[in-house]
Design a protein around this nucleic acid. Structure first.
Lengths: 129, 129
DNA sequence: CTTGACCTTCCAGTTACTGGAAGGCCCATG
DNA sequence: CATGGGCCTTCCAGTAACTGGAAGGTCAAG
């Protein structure tokens, strides 16, 4: 099938699929006219990538996971380790963002937000520490 | 003062400070030898930028906030609006990450993570939907 | 005078795409 | 048979916010 159909079926934009071929995550065949020809297996792989990316795995994580997926004899521990590392990254990001949110919320609560110039948000950012 | 001292005082790497000059967030004077010469006001501004960036404001947010900081007559509502928009972005990111975390945690709990090949994490990623 | 710590500019790379230009291919309609 | 629209192709550039490194100038100490 052509890239448009593969895009529809996998839920990934055609541009992204071409990019994934560029970085050698997939290698669809080519028709005589130069068009990419995606097999069901290719589309399945794209779906895998789409789901892994949705879970926030990096491209290099995805490359590793694809390798493990295709290695019928890999240990589930290998997969779990990648997932655990990724989970740690996610949790750390969440913690950072929550910290930001709390600080910002606090600042917002102390700022009256009217047309007067006095503003605790700016004051806090400007304060030498 | 030289860039090294400005870096120490502001907590920003010298590279980042040069970058901020590049994109016209700051405009330190120059000594006869070509070295940047940072005033206390410059360093203060760098501290402001550092704190705003720590709170996750984008560079363009920072540019706007700097403008508001230097405008003694701006309304606090202007600042609060930027902060509120930013807060919404942060909260949306947190929600996305929490979603990822929950899904990943669930998958990790169902994966025994030993040396057998069967792995629910991979299976889930591979499942056609 | 040399050494080492500074400083300068410029170029390239990072992540994961995304937009757009220029041009080829395919099918249906007039 | 021509043409138009919708596919497809490649290639180049841009995004955000730095970061690393090379090549070379400056300065203060010994």
């Amino acid at each position: 099938m052509n890239i448009g159909e593969a895009a529809t079926q996998s839920g990934l934009p055609a541009k992204t699929i071409r990019y994934y071929e560029d970085i050698k995550l997939i290698a669809p065949l080519r028709d005589a006219n130069g068009y990419r020809d995606f097999s069901d297996a290719d589309v399945h792989k794209l779906g895998f990538l789409s789901r892994a990316r949705t879970l926030g795995f990096t491209i290099e994580n995805c490359r590793a996971l694809l390798g493990l997926w295709e290695d019928q004899s890999r240990a589930s521990a290998d997969v779990k380790r990648i997932a655990a590392e990724h989970l740690a990254v996610i949790e750390s990001k969440i913690a950072d963002l929550c910290q930001m949110r709390d600080t910002l919320e606090h600042l917002m609560n102390t700022c009256h937000g009217d047309d007067r110039p006095d503003c605790p948000i700016i004051n806090e950012l400007a304060s030498r520490r």
